[in-house]
Design a protein around this nucleic acid. Sequence first.
DNA 1: GATGAATGAGCGTTCATTCAT
DNA 2: CATGAATGAACGCTCATTCAT
Lengths: 191, 191, 191, 191
Amino acid sequence: MTITNKRDKVVQTALELIAEHGFHAAPMSMVANRSGVAVGTIYRYFENKDVLINEIYREVEAKLYHVLLEGYATENPFRERFLHLGTALLRYFIENPLDFRYLEQFHNSPYGVTFRRGKILGKKEGGNVFRDLFEDGVSQQIIKDLPLLILFALAFGPLLDVARDHILGFITLDDLLITRTIEACWDGIRR
Amino acid sequence: MTITNKRDKVVQTALELIAEHGFHAAPMSMVANRSGVAVGTIYRYFENKDVLINEIYREVEAKLYHVLLEGYATENPFRERFLHLGTALLRYFIENPLDFRYLEQFHNSPYGVTFRRGKILGKKEGGNVFRDLFEDGVSQQIIKDLPLLILFALAFGPLLDVARDHILGFITLDDLLITRTIEACWDGIRR
Amino acid sequence: MTITNKRDKVVQTALELIAEHGFHAAPMSMVANRSGVAVGTIYRYFENKDVLINEIYREVEAKLYHVLLEGYATENPFRERFLHLGTALLRYFIENPLDFRYLEQFHNSPYGVTFRRGKILGKKEGGNVFRDLFEDGVSQQIIKDLPLLILFALAFGPLLDVARDHILGFITLDDLLITRTIEACWDGIRR
Amino acid sequence: MTITNKRDKVVQTALELIAEHGFHAAPMSMVANRSGVAVGTIYRYFENKDVLINEIYREVEAKLYHVLLEGYATENPFRERFLHLGTALLRYFIENPLDFRYLEQFHNSPYGVTFRRGKILGKKEGGNVFRDLFEDGVSQQIIKDLPLLILFALAFGPLLDVARDHILGFITLDDLLITRTIEACWDGIRR
DNA sequence: GATGAATGAGCGTTCATTCAT
DNA sequence: CATGAATGAACGCTCATTCAT
């Protein structure tokens, strides 16, 4: 699936460059070069570098949410829904390390500061899923009665750490390890 | 406690600038200006910007380890030791938000790449404490039999997230919340 | 013949600045200014200052060799060939004092160290002419049997000195003086 | 003969540094360091760097003249006097390569521009020797009737070139070669 | 639409010089 | 006399952005 669309080629190239080496290592001229596009062309599609960076973020986030919600059934029992999301999240990052790295770069930068509030959970559609899930769990007295953000931290914080360690090659996650890790997170939040 | 020593003033200023706005937003000239020092003076104490940045890291890390180990008794039961470290860690970050932010900037940058492996846990004295603790816990069959890095992620990942949320003002941690959060982490790792 | 090409304007400006005042007195910003070009523009054409300096050298050398070889006939008798080269060399420097000064600055600097070996004589086409000529002269027993470098020194050293004195205004070389000087050099090398 | 005098230690160190690597490679702080002296101390003895550099020049020149005039007898025949000076000059440079290199650096720099006029020959005592010698030779019709500077170039230009080649290791001068080179210079100037 | 040459503010770093001790 | 910490102008170079073609 080669990208012919220039705009998308730019997005992809910038994503790779930034994910691998940070914002510093992705001058517009280099993005242009590797995209097979002229510098000026990038500015046709994105007003400036900030806009490009934010746009990439939005696209990655959208892709991620899309995958997370695939096969997610609101009517399933809480535990099942939690395991689904946790597993999908971890798998997505393992399979898309560039996206994971980009998200990390983004969050840990002036760009991401405004978004930080809810990390994986946002404000949009995707966000509500997490929020709904955990509010549901709390009111059903299945999980601990703690502020949402703390529940998120307990549930997903370890997953992100573990994804990073895997991507950096410090550990190797297999199916069993993934399952056991997510169940440990479950132990952390359940009553 | 105003700093009179120029070297330390530079360290403090750079720490603040970087913690708040990132490495980009801390040009040497600005560090100099805000330190009330000439640019050249910085270079008397630090060979270059990289050295300055690494030195700040080392100092923050040392301060943190010192606090963590205060009152830490190897002979105490596992759970007690774990709670001690978790609580000390979280409190330290809440009380030293600049240090927390600096550590985050550092780890999430080319500088920190080499250190990333063990986040809070390192190689030195401090690091062994964490490693020793968890290996102890595993062999005593008190905590889950998982790779160390996963245990670390479960135990401390949420604490860092929660510290960040507090520092950014999204939640307010009080003693009760701190205790409950750390106990939730405990639930995550214990058998 | 005004230069419209920016690259060449930069080369010319840098040549002048360096020839007249040395490498120190030719900061890139000044070269840019006097070229009517922005600093960044220079770096489109030359990777860095070193490259610019070496490139100028190459161009001057090429121009010089070209002139020297104009009308040079390998089949002529030795003495005639020698007089041709000596005269062409001296005349070139008198007519292109900036080139002369540049070559001097270059040779007398870290840049030129690697080239020093053969001063006027090089490795390329031009260089072989000198080498061939003198080896020919030695084997024909027309000139003294001395190491090539000493022959070069005897033959061309005085010409360079004399060119310098002329350019600096300490003497004024006319056709007669040029001829007599070169013939004196001839006396120095001939058997 | 270790130098205890601080002023002289500075002169010696600066001479070495500059001779070997050029003015660039001899920051005052480095000169101070290697001299075992504080930066400020240098400024006690030399108003500024320029003064230091000119002072070193003066000392080297004086040492050189002293050696040249050793055993120089005005009453000797012209040829003998010429050979004496040429030999002494060449030998001095071979034995004091640092002095040679310093002199070259100096002459080929803004500092030396004002002195260039007479290269080896100056204005002072030493200078008169050369001037007197050649004016004598011309009026006695022993050497060619050419401007003094041209005679100097013919007589000493090759010697300097040859000294440089020796110092840089491109040739190795022995007694025979020295003699033959100087006699070739003699051939260049004699009638 | 697309191009890429051109721009220049801004960065990290060096080093001659000063001056309080 | 001697010290060396402190200064800050100046340098080489980068890169986001513009605009004539």
